[in-house]
Amino acid sequence: MLSIQALRTFYGHIEALKGVDIEVQAGEIVTMIGANGAGKSTLLMSMCGNPRARFGKVMFEGRDITQLPTFEIVRLGIAHAPEGRRIFPRMTVMENLQIGSTTAPSYFEEGLARVLRLFPRLDERRQQRAGTLSGGEQQMLAIGRALMSRPRLLLLDEPSLGLAPMVVKQIFQVIREINEAEGMTVFLVEQNAYHALRLAHRGYVLVNGRVTMSGSGAELLANREVRAAYLEGGH
């Protein structure tokens, strides 16, 4: 479904991605773990053309999307809940969800019902300004907003960041649910390696803009280097 080939992205002269290859099959949950500054967010953003990769290719469902404008890329069926949530703080929860359905307006009612079922907390807060939501609620809104476009591929950037363990559990449960019940393909970037690898079918490890390891979630969890670098202390 998604195929990234030798992708290289630069910020000025700094090369943030140094030739990344990724494959994601339809129906999979694939995770990417890596330390701060490894280039995980850059990779997700490069898929959406902002910043645009300088070399390499992004293929989505057999189509080369490397050079498409961002708003056209997401119209093809990719939704992105980016780093830092980036909900629209001065709009209500409802308005955020409405904007989420920009590329699929006819799906709005159905999508809304689905999102409110997945995140009942949002239902009680429909008319609340999104900027006044708690961190966990904002994350739910960010994911809900992404789901409103009826994507076939969902990109999630550190949805667990800064959230209490209970909320993290709930959000990961939702990711599993939409994957199992609806066959949604998910590409999940995480620092919370333990939970991410347990959830995902497969995973990649990104170090300094390069993929250094890949394998099934279980394999990576058992790998000594992964354990030493990402799983020591805690869990």
């Binding site: 959406c48 902002n50 404008p69 961002t70 708003f71 997401v74 119209r75 992105h80 980016p82 980036r86 629209f88 703080p89 001065r90 709009m91 904007i99 989420g100 920009t102 590329t103 907003r145 476009s149």
Partner: peptide
Amino acid sequence: QDRGMAALLG
């Protein structure tokens, strides 16, 4: 409020 995010939403 956030032009980059608006583009990401289509």
